[in-house]
Amino acid sequence: MVHIRDNFKESPSQTAGPYVHIGCTPNFTGIKDLYNSDLGSLMKFGPIKGEEITLKGTIFDGNGESLKDAMIEIWQADSAGLYNSPKEIRGQADPNFSGWGRCAVNLKTGLYNFETVKPGRVPNAEGILQAPHITVWIVARGINVGLHTRVYFSDEVKDNSSDPILTRIVESERTQTLLALKERKGLYKFDIHLQGSQETIFFDI
């Protein structure tokens, strides 16, 4: 174990606060003279391979109220399971797909929405194939350290049943909090519960 002096410990986290949009999605806030578009608002830059999907949902607090001031980011592989990253050594990811999306939830409804692609399977460090999944990161007022979780897909029953992470969840009844529900072809709903009986499983990764 490497000992790290305090000086070189990670900078401690602080909440993004209610005005995260100013810095991260200024166009959404009405600050239109700075950036052409909000970063991460488009994940597709042209024709892309694979099944195009919409991922949408709502984040709920412990009172069942939807968060109206949160921001969500997602990071995922393309339809072949490849990441659009210089660290990707297994092949060349779809150049028209960024893999990264950012969405400020709707200020009135709390809904978030991503136009993306169904990811392919990615092996873990031992080379075992994981089920298709999307990595999620949530920040908002009242969240002191950004929350990581994963979206899996309710219709990938076979892959989910052998996924190395899903299968090691001890409270197996909570596994369903990681499943996006297929509403119809190409449309998946993934609600996030910060607290309560349906609390989403959050990850320490």
Binding site: T15, D61, G62, N63, E65, L67, W75, Q76, A77, Y83, K87, E88, V122, P123, N124, A125, Q130, H133, T135, A140, R141, G142, I143, N144, L147, H148, R150, I165, R168, I169, R174, L194, Q195, E199, T200, I201, F202, F203, D204, I205
Partner: peptide, 20 residues
């Protein structure tokens, strides 16, 4: 604001993958 926006369960820890 943290009172109703803080998860109560332990975070799930697992070895990071390429996804992270």
């Amino acid at each position: 604001s943290s009172i109703y926006r803080s998860p109560q369960s332990k975070l799930l820890s697992f070895p990071a993958t390429q996804s992270e």
